[in-house]
């Protein structure tokens, strides 16, 4: 129940944030998608012992947060929410790998290094995905998909799913509320009730699908989805993409923190 309300409010928050009008929001959705993909690829391409080299990549989310005027706390909370899943997988590393390495004179287990590396990568990648949608929104994201030649029908179907998640989660939580009023103190549904409970909602879903189809059909839908005009890429968009990609690639090839550090420690 609470996870349902949570998910819904998170989705709605992201949806709201995506309607802001900042320089980042105005970048072409396709460019933002591609930039995100380059970012993810580069971050993920680091080997499993890398920690220091990953740090410069935090510039990307921080700059997006700042320029797009996004609230840090609620988004951070969303990211932390997903972290346990990764910790679940990552935590196995220290259990299985006990070999030690010397780090700054201290011996530490490689397993922990891997774990930390996964944790950082996960935080960065999850943040990047969420920032993409928080600065783009589902409609404009759909435009990016269209430009990638994803079939329109599939795009329409994604949009419909997105739209009706709100409606259905509300419907489901109304029903759960009614259920738990009559079955106080129960954690989750009783197993035997689940089938008919979900089944009821499913039948209503079918009926709704039918009505939605009629509504679409009455407005001339015949299986083709016509989108509005798609905005063209501007020079600014391309520059944005090039600048970030350049930064990512440089940060991938050169270990910037070590460079900075060696300059620094050397000077002193």
């Amino acid at each position: 129940m609470s996870n349902m309300i949570n998910s819904l409010s998170n989705m709605r928050l992201l949806d709201d944030l995506a309607r802001k009008e900042t320089f980042i929001h105005r970048i072409h959705p396709l460019i933002k998608l591609l930039t995100t993909v380059v970012y993810l690829t580069v971050v993920v391409s680091f080997e499993r012992y890398e920690i220091i080299g990953l740090l410069p990549f935090i510039f990307y989310p921080i700059l997006i947060f700042a320029f797009a005027e996004l609230p840090v706390a609620p988004i951070l909370k969303m990211i932390l929410l997903i972290e346990p899943f990764i910790i679940g997988i990552g935590i196995l590393n220290p259990l299985f790998d006990h070999s030690k390495v010397l780090f700054g004179g201290i011996a530490i287990s490689k397993g922990w290094v891997t774990f930390l590396s996964i944790l950082i990568k996960c935080s960065l990648t999850v943040t990047a995905s969420i920032l993409l949608i928080a600065t783009t929104g589902m409609d404009r994201f759909a435009v990016a998909l269209r430009m990638l030649k994803i079939p329109k029908i599939f795009v329409l179907q994604i949009l419909l799913t997105y739209r009706y998640i709100s409606v259905l989660i509300e419907e489901v939580s109304r029903m759960i509320r009614a259920y738990s009023l009559r079955a106080p103190g129960q954690k989750g549904l009783k197993w035997s009730a689940w089938g008919s409970f979900a089944g009821q909602i499913l039948l209503r879903t079918f009926e709704r699908a039918e009505r939605v189809y009629q509504a679409m059909n009455l407005r001339g839908f015949t299986g083709e989805y016509y989108t509005g005009d798609i905005a063209k890429l501007s020079f600014k968009d391309l520059a944005y993409f090039a600048a970030w990609s350049l930064f990512f690639i440089i940060a991938r090839i050169y270990n910037i923190p070590v460079l900075i550090g060696s300059l620094f420690t050397g000077v002193i």
Binding site: M138, D139, L159, L160, Y162, R163, Y164, V167, R208, R211, V212, Q214, A215, M216, L218, R219, G220, F221, T222, E224, Y226, T227, G228
Partner: peptide, 26 residues
């Protein structure tokens, strides 16, 4: 033109604009 009883059935796109534009675009 028919307006359905439950507007949620009729507003199937993600913004009001897209919804109102759906028919003419078709």
């Amino acid at each position: 033109g028919m307006v359905f009883q439950d507007p949620d059935d009729q507003l199937f796109m993600t913004t009001v604009y897209e919804d109102v534009a759906f028919g003419p675009r078709n």
